[in-house]
Design a binder for these strands. Structure first.
Lengths: 330, 330
DNA sequence: CTGAAAGCGCTTACAG
DNA sequence: CTGAAAGCGCTTACAG
């Protein structure tokens, strides 16, 4: 900075002001400083600047899984909204392992990010609460109550109901659900499914999966191994749904000929022509935009009101993986 | 730190040593310090620590596109290798926009990361050279010559030849290539295709695409609009190939009945049961692991030898999107 | 292991 | 706009 000041023939204080984009610098001096900096290849050390100012202008985004495009969509929403602000996004992932996610979150805290956004995180509520006490935190695709963090998610109960209703309207009565009960933040999909099934006078049939394609395939095999093979399957996310379809097809069954499948997320994958999966859109980008708005409200403001909860309304997108039930000849 | 020292009844210097995992601290004192830190909720400020030590123990990874799973695979390779080192990964993306990628890279530099890894970046060579002068840099899936940066990539000429040979072996003679000539780092695939076609006495037929599904669809339409419709298409990446298949299928053609398709990358997408795309595996994870090794060699060492280049050998994976040519009745 | 000092590269606040 | 001072929270190097 000293060097730049000397080259531009101004004071070090002025260089600092220019670097911080202060409005109280004359255009001429600003120009001179910028030119000198460029010539010397000078770039402000953000480490030092952040240490002194207590602001990093950085928000840390934890993406649950880089292989699942639905999280990329949430990222896009965040990015759209933060583009015209001074905040920069830094992302990390724990590759769906809770311990490594926790580690990534602590790295964000150690780096003193201005805010943290959790996208599909699988860490326990207690940890999220602790994080919320240290830095503005918003969790997406999941809700955390009784903690100083904002939640923004889709109304999954409504989404699951929409999926069941869609299949019911097509005449399906034997509707299985692939859920991941052990996975945090996915209870609502299961609840919505079970509740709606009972309301319709149908028996819920839940098979365990996880958040991967392999889990979907395993769930499909578990279904086939029983004597009761459903005519339709509602999977708790698209990746799982695709795993179900793969396994079913490999077993000689036709989708949607023999079974109809509904996914959840409406990610890029569901939209692939060859996949064409009917799916509940969880409004991923909007989730990201809303999260960004919450971040902007919190960052740099004194702790305002208590934790907030935003729920978006899901929308079912019908594609070719579902069709009216055909009577089984057996 | 002072507080922790007081609570543990040791000196501030000792706390610093413990935080840096120094071996010259007795187990008892170490325990006491760790306990005190935990109790006070103390975490070392990495901003301050990095500023003083000139090391951030952080490598910045620029991923070209979070929606393309092939980059996630490279990330996985990096992560595998860096897991047991003190280095932490921070990722950023420019969403395939060169200007935004450049911005993300500068953010890494401003943060003083120990190294930068570029995965599929679309910024110009000149910028990469400038980055390499400031920090150890390795670029993957692309090579940069005449610059102080390491390159690790697949032998794309060989990969393209393998794709052409595969189709040729199946009897195809009319083989189109969807390329993205404007896109940096993809010349070799085009060159390999064109060279091999000529060697086989065939006419190269190149259609322009980009790196997206939409680009593939546009390329497919461009092919259909001509009077010469090929019997096979080799697309320069999987996403493009899928776009081609989608558009072809929507136009009433069958893949592989009417046209065979080969992709490049062998990403998650190619492996989906419903997509089942024959694809050239670019060994993405191995790319990541190799990049990590190069980073580790450079970080903290005095500038050793000159820039290095690692080339991996691609492998074609045959799936159901290709089959022997069937004579056209026209 | 302690203690005291200097320094990392900035920002902040203020007098002029 | 300048100049000088204090401080951000650490690390480094050293004497004891």
């Amino acid at each position: 900075m000293e060097d730049v000041a000397r080259a531009a023939d101004v004071s070090r204080a002025l260089v600092s002001l220019v670097m911080r984009d202060s409005p109280k610098v004359s255009p001429e001096k600003r120009e001179a400083v910028i030119r000198a900096a460029e010539q010397l290849g000078y770039r402000r050390n953000r480490l030092a600047s952040s240490l002194a100012s207590h602001r990093t202008h950085t928000v840390g985004v934890l993406l649950s899984d880089l292989h699942n495009p639905v999280f990329a969509a949430v990222y896009d929403g965040l990015d759209d909204r933060l583009l015209d602000t001074p905040q920069r996004l830094l992302v990390a992932t724990g590759r769906t392992d809770p311990d490594r996610e926790a580690e990534a979150i602590w790295t964000f805290l150690d780096l003193r990010v201005d805010a943290v956004v959790l996208v599909g995180a699988s860490v326990p509520d207690a940890l999220i609460a602790k994080v919320g006490e240290r830095v503005p935190t918003v969790v997406t695709t999941r809700r955390v109550d009784d903690a100083p963090v904002d939640s923004v998610l889709t109304d999954d109960v409504a989404g699951a109901r929409a999926a069941v209703d869609h299949l019911h309207d097509l005449g399906h009565r034997d509707i299985a659900h692939v859920a991941s009960p052990s996975h945090l933040g996915h209870h609502d999909r299961l609840d919505g499914y079970a509740t709606r099934m009972r309301e319709l006078g149908l028996d819920p049939f839940v098979v365990e999966g996880d958040l991967t394609r392999a889990g979907g395939a395993r769930a499909a095999h578990a279904m086939l191994d029983r004597d009761r093979v459903p005519t339709a399957v509602f999977a708790h996310n698209d990746v799982t749904a695709i795993g179900v379809v793969d396994a079913l097809t490999a077993s000689g069954l036709d989708v949607p000929g023999d079974l109809s499948i509904v996914g959840y997320d409406n990610s890029d994958l569901a939209q692939l022509g060859q996949v064409s999966l009917t799916s509940v859109d969880m409004r991923s980008e909007e989730l990201g935009r809303t999260a960004a708005d919450l971040v902007l409200e919190r960052v740099g403001s004194p702790p305002l009101d208590g934790p907030r909860l935003h729920q978006l309304h899901p929308v079912l997108f019908e594609r070719t993986s579902t069709r009216p039930v055909t009577p089984r000849d057996r």
